[in-house]
Amino acid sequence: MRLTLKPIDAQTIVITGATSGIGLATARMAAQRGARLVLTARDRDALGRLCEEIRADGGDAVHCVADVADPAALKQVADLAVRTHGGIDCWVNNAGVSIYGRIEETPVEDHRRLFETDYWGVVNGSIAALPHLRRNGGALINVGSALSDRAIPLQGPYSAAKHAVKGFTDALRMELEADDAHISVTLIKPAAIDTLYEEHARNLLESEPLNPAPVYAPELVAKAILHAAEHPVRDLYVGSAAKLFSLSETFMPRLTDYAMERTLTRWQRAGGPKRQRGDALYGPAGDGRTRAGRHRFVRETSLYTEAQMHPWISAALVAGFGVLAGAAIARGWVRSGEPRHTWHEPHPDRAVERRRGDADLGYGRRTLGHNAKPAWLATSEREVTFRE
């Protein structure tokens, strides 16, 4: 049975972690495209402002305050979606938080709390959504990370949680497909994104944290999420850097270990002097922005991500370039495998004539250096030797 999904303007979409970063960018983009939204986060005021903003622009949005670590709270979010819009077409598990610091120096309670949000939040959201998605079909979209495939130093708990999200998502997908359930399950794997990620993370370092370049715009992730809401796809990498992370783990894991030990341990400490601030590990920490603005250069596009979302167009472009290249070679516009300059060994008789001609013209005295081999002889033999 071929799995088809509704267009965005016909969907009811639930988004967790909707008040900042990727969640906020996704909510605004989905509203602009006509989706009916059910938004959830821990910050009541920020949720209220966002829903008012969307409705002022002609959109449809309701909200429910919830902590994704609480399964009962997420069940209430699902019930609100059914009560206000009649069902759920897409559920996006986006809420997450990180910890910067060495694993040995991370308190166990902080480590556990991160898993409550980043891993159990995905599990709780999925369990809340599945009964409704089974009823009418739809999409379950989990926001993982490039670190779902490749761990990095100084973010060990976050890397571990995102690995767990990948394992859970892949296993759930196979079980649903074995049941012939009309549900698409997608894992989104962003590279470093210009959100409030660093500000919201608990910082155990001696300086402010900084994500390594390249850094991409949160709207790219939002675009990938909405693509997965309309098109069944297994996973999507946002940014070519995310795919390179995955390939490095597949083909040269030990070399990547050495490289990251020498670079990322320093780079992630390069955010400037440490300052007193809150974080979002145990509660909201001032939401309402999509971008942090801490990075000097942010990539607004990703050709690799576009190619994933539009594979047939990409294949057609590659084929077109191949046809043009073939035509250019056939017409002689481009040489094909033919060297521009080749050496032709002189015929012996011509070499003799050349030596005689040089002597007649007085060239016989031309030498290279002191008592060197004559130039005409060096040229014909393609070597220069000096005589004692």
Rank of each mutant, 00 (worst) to 15 (best):
L140I: 11
K166G: 10
T106I: 11
P153H: 12
L154E: 05
H132N: 08
A151T: 13
E116H: 13
A139H: 01
V123G: 04
D118H: 06
R150C: 07
D149A: 14
G137Y: 07
V122T: 07
A139G: 09
A128M: 06
G167S: 15
T169P: 05
I152D: 02
V143G: 00
V143T: 08
V123Q: 04
F168N: 03
P131N: 12
L114S: 03
H132S: 10
P157N: 12
R112E: 13
I152K: 07
D110G: 09
T117E: 03
S126P: 09
A146D: 05
D149Q: 14
R113C: 12
A161F: 06
V165M: 03
G125H: 01
S145Q: 05
V123N: 07
V143D: 02
L147W: 11
D118G: 02
A146Y: 05
L140G: 06
A128S: 12
R134Q: 11
K162G: 02
T169E: 01
N136A: 14
Y119H: 12
G144M: 04
T106L: 13
Q155M: 15
T117W: 04
G138D: 06
V108Y: 11
K166Y: 12
V143M: 07
E116N: 14
A129N: 02
K162I: 01
S145L: 05
A151H: 11
E109A: 15
P107F: 12
S145P: 08
E109T: 15
L154P: 00
G156I: 14
Q155G: 12
L130S: 07
I152R: 00
A160F: 04
V122D: 03
W120F: 15
K162S: 00
V143I: 15
A128Q: 04
G144L: 04
G156D: 08
R150H: 13
A146C: 14
N142G: 03
D118V: 05
